[in-house]
Simulated assay, not measured.
Amino acid sequence: MTPLVVTLLVVATLLVGALAGYALYLWRRVWRNERLLAEAQTKRHAALAEDLRILASCLLDEQLPLIEGAIRIKVLLDNYDSALGQDPRCEVFQKLFEATEQVPTHAAWKALDSKERRRHEANFSALELQHKAAARRSARWLLDEALPNPGRAA
């Protein structure tokens, strides 16, 4: 072999080695990012589960209004696990959400005249009477069976 061929082989080998090293570096970054993403999703999922546990407990203890609790639980369930949100045992949260989704919130609620507010409040009372037992059963089911219990050993 001539010195030129040997030099070209050495350069080619070094170039392939450098490219392989760079590819390995990039793959390690991808794997690290995937691991970090999975950890973040796990933490988010655990935080949503804990928020759902708190809301279900508050709903059972009557620490928040039934309608508000049902709406909040429904929204969190959709973010936590859409299949769980579609479970027939959680159907009451969806029903209450749909029955109240046209009601104005925040500043729009404050801007309503008192007659309109009373009309919505009467609707809330009727919905609460109709769905309170089912909502309480659903909240109890979430706490006892559907959501992970941080106090239990895994």
Rank of each mutant, 00 (worst) to 15 (best):
M1S: 12
T2S: 15
P3S: 13
L4V: 12
V5Q: 14
V5D: 15
V5T: 15
V6A: 12
T7W: 10
L8Q: 10
L9W: 10
L9D: 10
L9A: 11
V11A: 12
V11L: 14
A12K: 02
A12R: 02
T13W: 06
L15Y: 05
L15W: 09
V16D: 04
G17V: 05
G17P: 00
L19H: 05
A20R: 05
Y22S: 06
L24K: 06
L26K: 14
W27R: 13
R29D: 11
R29Y: 05
V30I: 09
R32D: 08
E34L: 13
R35F: 11
L36G: 04
L36R: 15
L36H: 10
L37H: 07
A40V: 04
Q41K: 12
T42Q: 12
H45L: 09
H45S: 11
A46F: 06
A46W: 08
L48A: 04
L48G: 01
A49F: 05
A49K: 03
D51R: 13
R53M: 09
R53G: 11
I54E: 03
A56C: 09
S57H: 13
S57Q: 13
C58R: 15
L59F: 07
L60S: 01
D61A: 15
E62K: 15
Q63M: 13
Q63I: 00
P65T: 08
I73S: 06
K74L: 02
K74I: 00
K74Y: 15
V75S: 07
V75L: 11
L76Y: 14
L76D: 09
D78K: 07
D78H: 07
D78Y: 04
N79S: 08
Y80F: 14
D81K: 05
S82G: 01
L84E: 01
L84N: 01
G85Y: 03
Q86N: 10
Q86Y: 08
Q86R: 15
D87A: 12
D87Y: 03
P88V: 10
R89P: 03
C90P: 01
C90H: 07
E91W: 07
F93M: 03
K95W: 14
K95D: 07
L96W: 00
L96Y: 00
A99E: 10
A99M: 04
T100G: 04
E101M: 14
E101W: 12
Q102C: 00
Q102I: 05
P104Y: 07
T105E: 07
T105W: 04
H106G: 06
A108E: 08
K110V: 04
A111C: 05
D113R: 06
S114Y: 07
K115E: 14
K115S: 11
E116K: 14
R117M: 10
R118C: 02
R119G: 01
F124C: 04
F124K: 08
F124G: 03
A126Y: 09
A126V: 13
A126R: 12
L127R: 02
L127N: 04
E128A: 13
L129K: 12
L129C: 10
Q130V: 06
Q130T: 15
H131I: 02
A133M: 08
A134G: 01
A134E: 15
A135H: 02
R136N: 05
R137K: 12
R137V: 01
S138Q: 03
S138P: 04
A139K: 03
R140M: 13
W141M: 02
W141C: 01
W141D: 02
D144L: 12
D144A: 10
A146S: 09
L147F: 06
L147C: 06
P148F: 00
N149S: 11
P150Y: 02
P150M: 02
G151W: 09
R152T: 08
A153N: 14
